[in-house]
Amino acid sequence: MKIPHVVGPVDQIPFGEGRAFGIDGEQVAVFRLRDGTLRAVSAVCPHKGGPIADGTIDQRVVMCPLHQHSFELETGCSTTGAKPLRTYEVFADEGQNIVVIP
């Protein structure tokens, strides 16, 4: 069964950046896009373990800081030929808390 995890208020993530959380033994990077939507993907780059939450993003992709592989935030698929990231369902509840469904 999928148990939603509340990881705290959305404003701990600045617009356009990501922060990482440990959820159920998994490392998850949550991004807050400039338009306010949230996205969650696995936090460890499949290429060589780079910290995805430190990546640069736009509305569509995150770019790993180590060797610039890019991944679609929506699907996790790489646009540069790397293995995909896992994606997670994520949203902000009424209390403006981030909820991740692992």
């Binding site: 993530i13 600045p14 490392q27 910290p51």
Partner: peptide, 13 residues
Amino acid sequence: PTPGQFRTSLPLT
């Protein structure tokens, strides 16, 4: 200047 600016990005490593 930003929240969590120096927080780890690989929390379980």
